[in-house]
Design a protein around this nucleic acid. Structure first.
Lengths: 223, 223
DNA sequence: GATTGATCGTGACGGTGTCAAGATCTGCGG
DNA sequence: CCGCAGATCTTGACACCGTCACGATCAATC
């Protein structure tokens, strides 16, 4: 069973506006904009308010804190991550292929939603113990762990599912974070930069390829 | 002009003080204190200045920017990381054992110098393109890559050294970052928390154990 | 149609980063 | 021994920020 996800997905706009419109959603997307343009460093509640066309204290009313707003962004990030992981693995029968697809989905979220990713794991700017936040994070993790469990079930039952799942998660997270460092490393070696997807392919091959005894693996039913 | 000091190791106090003492070093250690107590969120140049007993603009003179000061802290962190990795692997002949020792050294730095680690990879609060910073980071990475190269040389020459080294680096980095998430996951499963060192052991076993064909591995010359 | 509560604006306070300009000390040439 | 130049630090100011208390405004309900 693992993880329960309570939260609703793209958060449908609160049907009818009270005063101004559905400010919370507007503020959240404005926040994403600001992070995107000025970075988390140049982020400010007042700038968000300005961009949303409301007074400087309006964000405080809905999110209480600056951390509250960023937490909302992080939750949204985890939810889209969860959805993307599910979507990436859907329809792929072989769990190993599914794991690779999930890995690609992970970095795809990192690429397409950099603002969210810049926040999701920065506990110091979030209310780290927000239950909705941890629930959303664990829900996304649950997708990965479920896939690893499926691998264990089909191939080698003695696979330490928890450890492997955490290994994969750590690797993906570290990869997203170290991406720039790797890029500068490639540049220093004067060779074409390695893309995130290439890294994912190589890493998953290295991890998975090693986990399973070749002869014990049944034929893979590809496609 | 950039802030880059010609960085030597523990930075011997500039022999004789000009006015106040060797302010840059004092400011840097004060900065570490502040990060430790108030977190990166509550960090401020003025607080650092107060703690060092100087005026509020003194840090700006030496480090130019708030990012300059944090960059200096990050550089110091990478340097101690480098030293610790070298120290951890010293005297261990078998490169696989050395890799595990290096992994433990990595998380040890994460535990013993949390303030530095809170900064080292946060490009948004650093001058990310500071050459001294990238050099220090690559130097630390080089220790890891050298160890993986030694594994390839002794065991399987066809090992993709770069990829494996990056895999290990990503894993360690992700592990340090996801530590709290894993802790809450353990708590949710109502079992004793897994320590960082345990994670390192399991991850390196999973990675290394899979990389080498068992029969191709020569007897390990332990001790 | 008045009331009530949610929603948002106004204004203020202390704190912050950063810059310019002035003060102070150090080392060095004379 | 003196004075000068430059490095080092302080002072002061400006704009911006987060957050709070309070007032204004609107929606829905009785």
């Amino acid at each position: 069973m693992a993880v329960t996800r309570a939260a609703i997905r793209p958060e449908p706009p609160t049907a009818v506006a009270y005063h101004h419109g559905d400010l919370p959603n507007v503020l959240r997307s404005s926040a994403v904009e600001v992070i995107l343009e000025k970075g988390l460093h140049g982020f400010s509640l007042r700038e968000v308010a300005r961009r949303a066309g409301v007074s400087h204290a309006a964000p405080g009313y809905h999110f209480g804190d600056i951390r509250g707003l960023l937490t909302a962004v992080a939750i949204e990030g985890f939810e889209t991550l969860h959805d993307e992981l599910v979507r990436s693995g859907a329809g792929i029968d072989d769990p190993i292929d599914r794991l690779k697809a999930i890995g690609h989905g992970y970095v795809r979220v990192g690429i397409e939603h950099p603002a969210h990713c810049e926040v999701m794991f920065r506990d110091d700017v979030l209310v780290a113990d927000d239950p909705t936040l941890t629930a959303a994070g664990l829900a996304a993790y649950g997708v990965l762990e479920g896939c690893v469990a499926a691998i264990a079930e089909r191939y080698t039952a003695d696979l330490p599912v928890q450890d492997v799942a955490r290994l994969c998660w750590s690797t993906m997270q570290g990869l997203v974070e170290l991406q720039s460092k790797f890029a500068s490393l490639d540049a220093m070696l004067t060779r074409s930069p390695t893309t995130l997807d290439e890294h994912v392919d190589r890493f998953t091959d290295l991890i998975i390829g090693g986990l399973l005894d070749p002869q014990r693996r049944p034929k893979r039913a590809r496609r």
